[in-house]
Write a protein that binds this DNA or RNA. Structure first.
Lengths: 204, 204
DNA sequence: GCAATTTACTGAACATTGTTTAGTAAGTAA
DNA sequence: TTACTTACTAAACAATGTTCAGTAAATTGC
């Protein structure tokens, strides 16, 4: 059945085409200002066509969401091989920060947006997020077993680490560092400093 | 000039009426789902009337925003008299967390939303946010002067404290704690624990 | 007290959004 | 060749933020 397979392949290709265009526009314009019509125009199809591949805007942006997580995991995995767990933890954090700096729209969609989560209310689990969390937790457990950092319930401590870095970059991307009277470079530098400060505090 | 004054007063009252209605609907429905028409209907005026008092939705939601900051500052000020600066710092953080739990829509508007910030691009400064930041910084400087916590550039350390708590509550309100498989109560408890853990780490 | 003007407000419209539906034209199968 | 399926679109719908011309009442000047 070569025809059916080709059709299946073509369907997948078109799906990818849509997600790719959506991701692009989204990255340029931000979530709010990305319209279904805009995406349709970019791929030179009618808006209705998108609805043949995605239930609604939510589902489409969920696909972009997944794409973003793929990207983040790729970046973070680069340092998976570093032997020293404390140094690995440091590098993971820095990669995380860098990801937010380079792809703020992805970051906000993945961690700050409320919208594409209607999707999860149906599909419930948040596997992609979970995977990234586990990756971090593993590094922290490693540190703890080797007695490099304070002892704490691993999941809780992982959450605290994540929260700290997430807090910094979120305030940054959401423009709330205005309160600090810093230039953009100074803000970024401060965040990198923050990562090191945090790790120092956690060290035993 | 009694008439002019009465008119001025009436104008202010109507403005407040609009902001109040907007805040209410916003708190019920969330930012996205709050429409100008909905607000107009609630106060029994035409949508166009709102535009006589506010330039656009942005400016109206900025007013709600200010209202939220007033509320937060009121909560936080309750502990301003506590003498022990470390305990004061702890209580400020807990009030902050509690505020987020009780008024998540306000919180997200104040610290997570991107939308009503067009306003600030024109009016530039973020005085209300600055005030809350200074309040926190003062407590931290107090701790530092009395040698209770690690020594650090005060503004930076204040930012780190803020980021940590903000990170936790943001992940919570944005439903990203899904990754942790916790009940709502457990999540909230974990955040309160986080505040204490953080303070312990900062202690000398 | 009457006329002119200002004020406060609205109805109706505009452009833009996400989404649905009825219909079409091409590709596939019998 | 005929029937059916697939892939797609034009057009419409309802809801959004926003604007504008017009109106009726309140205020002012004479």
């Amino acid at each position: 059945m070569g025809i059916a397979e080709r059709k299946e392949r073509e369907k997948q290709e078109k799906r990818d085409l849509i997600v790719d265009a959506a991701a692009r526009i989204f990255a340029e314009e931000g979530y709010e200002r990305t319209s279904m019509r805009g995406i349709a125009e970019r791929i030179e199809y009618s808006p209705a066509t998108i609805y043949l591949y995605f239930k609604d805007k939510d589902e489409l942006l969920h696909a972009v969401h997944e794409l973003g997580f793929g990207l983040l995991m790729k970046e973070m995995s680069k340092v998976a091989a570093v032997a020293d767990p404390l140094e690995r933890l440091r590098l993971i954090s820095l990669e995380y920060v860098r990801f937010c700096f380079e792809h703020p729209q992805y970051y906000n969609l993945m961690f700050n947006s409320l919208e594409p989560l209607n999707y999860y209310e149906d599909h419930c689990n948040w596997d992609t997020g979970r995977k990234a969390f586990d990756f971090l937790q593993y590094a922290i457990e490693d540190c703890m077993q080797k007695g490099l950092i304070v002892e704490q319930e691993p999941k809780a401590l992982t959450f605290f680490c994540w929260s700290f870095v997430h807090g910094m970059v979120s305030l940054y991307t959401r423009n709330r560092l205005r309160a600090l009277d810093l230039s953009d470079e100074e803000s970024r530098a401060l965040i990198f400093t923050g990562v090191n400060t945090w790790l120092d505090l956690m060290k035993k």
